[in-house]
């Protein structure tokens, strides 16, 4: 009885910690993005609220909460109100299976630093990242606006086509580590991160998650100079904020996916494992921001052509080569 209670308490503590960390990390990711982008353009970025603008996320939150929550007259009310929640919910749920540190030993108990070690964790992740499309597509559909609808449609088409490349990129990793469990995949990278073992898969995966997170070169769904703001054109106040936070939580989740699958997870010398995990996520996030500051947006047809004609065949070829290699080595 006592043991069950303790387990539940531990799970709740882990949940609270992870949720708090992920959400505040997402909020500060927004600030970091604005700062880094600004410095790349030789500006200062937000520096008015608090020292170095560090309280900016808080100010943004207050502003968004105080804004009027507008719902267009002809919008599909319930779908319109639920869509942002789908967007945030799926992104947050996805973090449940990600192992963020080596198992801890406290008072003789082993605490796994993962909320839930599913043996099909990878499939769960992919299922949720596919579900996230619904938030965007339904939000665009329910707004009853041309721009939102176009943005939603683009998001749907883009995410379906890049999900395929994403799935194909991780097949070699699964074949090599012989498991769908993320903990097992991390454990298999103790000596060498997968990025060096499967460089082509790594490359495809990085490009695909950039498309998956709807960020620049692939930010067609919200292309602000064509579609106003894409699928969240009609959203205001905290509902817009939820889309926004969902996007950055998604960025963190995809960053941790990249870390877990290709960059060796929490493995690393000297520092504690959670520290390594954080450093790797932040490095991935910086890379994403760097790409945003550097690369212009693709055209829509270029984007689809690149996904279907280059990434998918390359992914298939990569699977074939890896399979032959694994068979040959026995």
């Amino acid at each position: 009885m006592n043991d069950v209670l303790l387990t539940i308490i531990l799970i709740v503590i882990k949940l609270g910690l992870v949720l708090g960390t992920v959400l505040s990390l997402a909020a500060y990711m927004v600030l970091a993005e604005r700062k880094v982008l600004a410095r790349m353009q030789m500006r200062h970025g937000p520096n008015r609220v608090g020292p170095f603008g560090l309280l900016q996320p808080l100010a943004d939150l207050i502003k968004l909460l105080c804004k009027e929550d507008l719902i267009p007259e002809r919008a599909d009310r319930w779908v319109f109100m639920l869509a942002p929640a789908i967007s945030v919910g799926t992104a947050l749920l996805a973090f449940a299976v990600i192992p963020f540190g080596a198992p801890l030993q406290i008072f003789g108990r082993t605490i796994e630093l993962v909320i839930c070690d599913l043996n099909i964790g990878l499939l769960y992740l992919f299922a949720l990242s596919s579900l996230a499309v619904y938030g965007v597509a339904l939000g665009g559909w329910a707004s009853q606006s041309k721009f939102a609808l176009l943005g939603g449609l683009r998001a749907m088409a883009q995410m379906i086509s890049y999900e395929l490349a994403l799935g194909l990129a991780i097949v070699p990793v699964v074949m090599a580590s012989k498991s769908f469990s993320l903990t097992a995949i991390v454990a298999s990278q103790q000596s060498l991160p997968n990025a060096l073992r499967h460089p082509l898969a790594f490359l495809i995966f990085v490009i695909a998650i950039m498309a998956e997170s709807k960020r620049t070169p692939f930010d067609m769904p919200e292309a602000e100079n064509e579609l106003v703001a894409g699928y969240h054109t009609e959203y205001s106040g905290m509902r817009f904020g939820m889309f926004f936070v969902g996007e950055y939580v998604n960025l963190i989740v995809l960053g941790s996916m990249l870390t877990v699958l290709f960059l060796g997870g929490w493995h690393g010398p000297f520092l504690p494992s959670v520290g390594w995990f954080l450093i790797k996520i932040l490095a991935v996030a910086f890379f994403f921001i760097w790409v945003r500051g550097t690369v212009p947006r693709l055209r829509y047809d270029q984007l689809m052509a690149f996904g279907w004609k280059i990434l998918v065949p390359l992914g298939l070829l990569n699977i074939l080569v890896t399979a032959v290699w694994l068979l040959w080595r026995g």
């Binding site: 600004a38 030789m42 200062h44 550097t294 690369v295």
Partner: peptide
């Protein structure tokens, strides 16, 4: 090449007058 350019500018002083 553009990545190198943006990285270089990241460490430049901003030209903004506050």
């Amino acid at each position: 090449q553009p990545f190198w350019v943006t990285l270089r500018y990241l460490f430049c002083r901003p030209v903004t007058i506050c």
